[in-house]
């Protein structure tokens, strides 16, 4: 176990292993998202109250899941970087942030689009919506903080600390609908399967969630690889690699 984690310290090793993993996750992402989209949009039955507008759930829920998971990943990577000085962790965290921000925006936007016909308003300052908006600002803060320092070390440390402190917002988002009265309804989709929706609606949603996660992993691997090359461009093995390709 330690030996395996120890290997993670080596950007060269990560570069090699991620090359093998990457195609698998890209194929999984494409397959799952395509299947889930077609199934969810065309074949899943309409909802008894919302009609077809409920289908926004097939984008909204996976995006919201990713938005929160990516932030937690960023915080864990930040802790690993701060305590063990593993550079890969910092690179991955830096590469995750824009996708997380994008996913947060997608979930806010799709929720607003759904809110107009369902609630009668696109925005309400309830605990769930507000904490999600704070998450978007935290993402933007992490991204901006990285750009605000000339020294990469300081930038990485500042971004890591903000991610770790910001992770407090995640349980608030998750439990906001249970702790307070909100306009947003409690969770429909749970992994444990306290089914608040029948199988033929739930299955495509599960596929979409898995597809979004695969996409996140694939994209993070790909972007971390190019970040490794960028940061290690003066290292021997990268030059050798570039030489081979020439």
């Amino acid at each position: 176990m330690w030996a395996f984690i120890n290997k993670l310290r080596s950007p060269k090793w990560f570069y090699a292993i991620s090359a093998k993993l990457q195609p698998f996750f890209w194929v999984a992402a494409a397959g799952l998202i395509l299947t889930g989209t077609v199934w969810g949009l065309a074949f899943a039955p309409a909802d008894y109250q919302q009609g077809n507008s409920f289908r926004i759930i097939y984008v909204h829920v996976p995006a919201a899941f990713l938005a929160q998971s990516i932030f937690v990943s960023m915080a864990v990577a930040g802790l690993v970087y701060m305590v063990w000085k593993i550079k890969i962790a910092d690179m991955a965290a830096a590469m995750m942030a824009p996708l997380g921000a994008a996913m947060t925006f997608v979930s806010l936007f799709s929720g607003a689009v759904w809110g107009v016909p369902t609630w009668g308003t696109w925005w309400m300052w309830d605990a769930r919506l507000t904490s999600m908006l704070i998450l978007l600002f935290l993402y933007l803060g992490v991204i901006a903080l990285r750009g605000a320092f000339t020294s990469r070390d300081s930038a990485s440390r500042a971004a890591s600390v903000l991610a770790m402190v910001g992770v407090i917002n995640i349980p608030i988002i998750k439990y906001s609908v249970d702790w307070w009265y909100t306009l947003h309804q409690p969770a429909t989709f749970t992994i444990t399967g306290r089914a608040a929706m029948p199988m033929e609606m739930w299955a495509p949603l599960l596929i979409m969630v898995l597809g979004f996660y695969s996409f996140f992993i694939a994209l993070t691997l790909m972007r971390t690889r190019s970040e490794i090359l960028r940061r290690e461009s003066n290292k021997r093995w990268v030059r050798d690699l570039a030489g081979e390709m020439r």
Binding site: A46, Y48, F54, I57, G120, Q185, P186, A187, A196, P198
Partner: peptide, 18 residues
């Protein structure tokens, strides 16, 4: 001044609800 509908977490096809 304004009435908003609140949706619960339950989703189901119309035939089932019926």
């Amino acid at each position: 001044d304004q009435v908003l509908a609140r949706h619960d977490e339950n989703y189901m096809p119309p035939e089932v609800a019926q």
